[in-house]
Design a protein around this nucleic acid. Sequence first.
DNA 1: TGTAGAAGCGGACCCCGGGTCCGCATTCTA
DNA 2: TAGAATGCGGACCCGGGGTCCGCTTCTACA
Lengths: 197, 197
Amino acid sequence: MPERRARKDAVRNRAAVFAAADTLFTDCESPDDVTMADIAAAAGVGKGTLFRAFGDRAGLIRALYAARLEPVEEAVEAGPPPLGPGTPPLQRVPALLDALLCFKLDNRHLALALEGSGSGSPYRAAHYERWHTLLRTMLEGLPGLPDSGFAAHALLAAVRADLVEHLAGEERVPREVMRSQLADCTAAFIGSPRDPE
Amino acid sequence: MPERRARKDAVRNRAAVFAAADTLFTDCESPDDVTMADIAAAAGVGKGTLFRAFGDRAGLIRALYAARLEPVEEAVEAGPPPLGPGTPPLQRVPALLDALLCFKLDNRHLALALEGSGSGSPYRAAHYERWHTLLRTMLEGLPGLPDSGFAAHALLAAVRADLVEHLAGEERVPREVMRSQLADCTAAFIGSPRDPE
DNA sequence: TGTAGAAGCGGACCCCGGGTCCGCATTCTA
DNA sequence: TAGAATGCGGACCCGGGGTCCGCTTCTACA
């Protein structure tokens, strides 16, 4: 299989771009005052290199996002309860949403950049599809719930990046408050730990 | 009060731009392949006129959106039940969400353009604030519900333009199906017509 | 180690869309 | 009807994403 090994400088440059972009997005005010030229400059690299490595802006952002997301996916796929598999939905659904919320809080600009990346709706991203499928599957096991596909969409919509950003940034809702509010809402929806009167 | 009357040609042109933009957005594939130059051309007007009348692209979109939304606001503020005032929250909340869903279905591109308009998050729009306040107020009267502010955000997130667009466009969910799914979800959340066991 | 040629580099360049500007036309006021 | 004020419009600017191609650097093979 003639998949030739990548050249050393190529991997080095790719890594440099990756690191530069990561810090730039972390430190910026808003994701779209981080320009491709900025990234190239910060990485000490030409624009051509950058586009060769990642295709386009969206590709770069996806790559960064995926890298940051990896630990979460790991934890969901093979981690311990309550996130990992083998946990009953009543605990796992809130745990998943909480994890996503925390992730977006920790990676605000990146998530914002991804979800708002031009015309590409967030709903075409591969990882969205995965969360949605997982969530829907879990919801299906729950009694008294409506169409689980739509419900999964609705729950995921509650942790969308720009909403999270708005709450954290504009309304200055502290992290823990937000987490508990989300937990309460989730509980109200899937109807678990509200003690039955 | 020296607010001089606007010139005849000015109002005429403003109207022309308005109409042209409206049809363009309605007929387009995606809101961002309708360009400001296109609108000006379609209205038979120079770009300068267009920008003078509406400030910038976002302003124009807001104006269009507001015009389309007006009937809905009317119905909510002073219409008959279940949308109008004086309806108990248990019916009015679902009615409001349903109305919003229908609105977004009927004005997909416009809503998409508004919510995705560049850096401006949907959460800064004036009308969002109004829906949120109204919804929160209604939710406050309901028993067993968590923080109504967050809950209101979450419910509104379920009818966001790009989600609606995705469901209607990509997944080809028919209008009535979507409405009933939303209704079911709302019911599950505010906990109304699930008959108590 | 030398060398051929592929793989990659980089920044000048292009394109396109939002937004501005200013000389000219139109409309209001006296 | 003269003059001022207001508005018109399209040439123009700017900035960012994306491309291109002559040159450099690495690798494979001897």
